[in-house]
Design a protein around this nucleic acid. Sequence first.
DNA 1: CAATAATTGCACTTCCATTGCAAGTATTAG
DNA 2: CTAATACTTGCAATGGAAGTGCAATTATTG
Lengths: 138, 138
Amino acid sequence: MQTIEQVLESKDIRVTAMRLLIYKFLAEKEVAVTLSDIEHAFVKADRTTLYRTIKTFEEKDIVHQIDDGTGITKYALCENGCNCEIETDLHLHFHCNNCNETICLTEHKIPQIKVPEGFVSENVNLVVKGICDKCSGQ
Amino acid sequence: MQTIEQVLESKDIRVTAMRLLIYKFLAEKEVAVTLSDIEHAFVKADRTTLYRTIKTFEEKDIVHQIDDGTGITKYALCENGCNCEIETDLHLHFHCNNCNETICLTEHKIPQIKVPEGFVSENVNLVVKGICDKCSGQ
DNA sequence: CAATAATTGCACTTCCATTGCAAGTATTAG
DNA sequence: CTAATACTTGCAATGGAAGTGCAATTATTG
Ligand SMILES: [Mn+2]
Ligand SMILES: [Mn+2]
Ligand SMILES: [Zn+2]
Ligand SMILES: [Zn+2]
């Protein structure tokens, strides 16, 4: 088990207080977060810093971006050993129409999608919408 | 074969010059269009009118919205007999990373996606990204 | 300790989406 | 046919998210 410091260093990112805090915040959340969520969690920090921190994380494949169709970009920590660099987002994402939260279903891989002759598939974004386990009351 | 006038009337939309023109524009395009595309095609009309026309079409299930991950909403005419109201976007969408165009693959239905216990799937958004038939040169 | 490099904060910008309100146009009732 | 009413269109303004230039601060290195 690596410490957060070790994770950052292994990706050639300097360890700063801000980065540790944001990493912890993401790790504690079991759902994908928006920049605005992070802003509300760290009101003292500047928006730009938060923005650039998450962008750094994204570049270095510490987080991946999720477009769940709400129009607002969300982010979630990559799984240990996730290969975002090679094939983006192999797992599917679930967006709850009730609580409006989006979560990674890391265990659920995206099935092979057939495309017509002449088309070349490079990657796939798949978002399932519906009611999440918490909201469905089971 | 219905005329455009008949299509609009059947959906309780008043026939206006603007609406006929925009409908025709969408019908002639084989790709999904942005509001900005429509704006460029109708420079004399006000942006708001174009916006509200497309929103009216969307409400009445004449067009469907496509979120292809570019951050800009696109629209495309619904197929004849499409059931947007009931289950949104059964077909998949393809976004070309080369020409930046998005098309409906109406023949390609989205496969059944399994979700974990407790989750209820209501609809699915699936966008495949890659190279389209025109750009792949076949 | 000084030089250098990276990070952070502030201010500003751009782009798309959306709304209030007034003016114009079509529809309906008398 | 005319007046009242409903709907459509245009203008102006707003809001929200994303992104950038630059200076100040902080950390790293020699
Ligand atoms: Mn994910
Ligand atoms: Mn479509
Ligand atoms: Zn929920
Ligand atoms: Zn193409």
